[in-house]
Design a binder for these strands. Structure first.
Lengths: 126, 126
DNA sequence: TCTTGACTTGGACAAGGTCCATTGTAGGAT
DNA sequence: ATCCTACAATGGACCTTGTCCAAGTCAAGA
């Protein structure tokens, strides 16, 4: 455990945290000015491999990193402002996929992105 | 409707078609050698805006384009080889998200990516 | 102190995508 | 038939995101 890795882990702490790698880097630089972008990418990759952090993407652009890895959840994304919340649907998302729709796959997980407008964006007439 | 746009639309025809923009461009070039990458991006963007094509991403890298836009469906992705199938889960994926998990959002849709190994990849011991 | 090995750094590089000034083109007006 | 005009296509610059690698740094043990 180096100071660089500690800073990355600290930046990711908290609930409903869904930072991109560059956002993690920007916040890490505030605490450790000379930390390199490559180090942030390396450390994030290690945290994902260890299962401490979940990697996902809501827009096909930058990947995001979610420290809430020990409680299964999905993501709810505002189509207006991009706000992301962790949500827990009822039941197992895999259960609703019938065998005849599995094409012989050994299906292991389902990643769900719910989309809609958050209270601020729908109130503003968006 | 120009010849360029017609070629892009033709390339996207068919079932279980999930090409990236560059793949669309490569196939379009076979039919119309001088078509520009920017034209393919522009045309794909227009088709998405018209609702004729669905844009999605399974890996946070390249966006993919699915001409099967008029029948609601989700995607099943092989974790080994990347094969993608259109699938239709039972019921409405939105129904399983309880009101207290919606955080005041006006939730409109759910994008689901099922992941697992396809018959070829699970048989090969992957 | 010297060696060793893991970690970090910075810069080059690559993929995917966007932007924009210029060029091409089809159809209506003259 | 020719000119005008609006819109589409082109090609290249450029941006973002991410990966790779050679060289530098550092801490711990011999």
């Amino acid at each position: 455990m180096t100071s660089q890795r500690r800073v990355v882990a600290e930046v990711l702490a908290g609930d409903h945290v869904h930072l991109t790698a560059d956002e993690v880097h920007a916040r890490a630089v505030e605490r450790l000015p000379e930390i390199a972008r490559a180090t942030v990418y390396n450390t994030l990759g290690e945290l994902v491999a260890l299962g401490e952090v979940v990697e996902f993407s809501t827009d096909g652009r930058a990947k995001r990193y979610d420290p809430n890895a020990h409680r299964a959840h999905q993501h709810l994304v505002c189509s207006g402002c991009g706000l992301i919340r962790d949500v827990r649907p009822a039941g197992d998302p895999l259960a609703v996929l019938p065998a005849e729709e599995r094409f012989g796959f050994a299906v292991e997980k389902a990643d769900v992105t719910y989309r809609g407008l958050c209270p601020d964006c729908s109130g503003a007439g968006g």
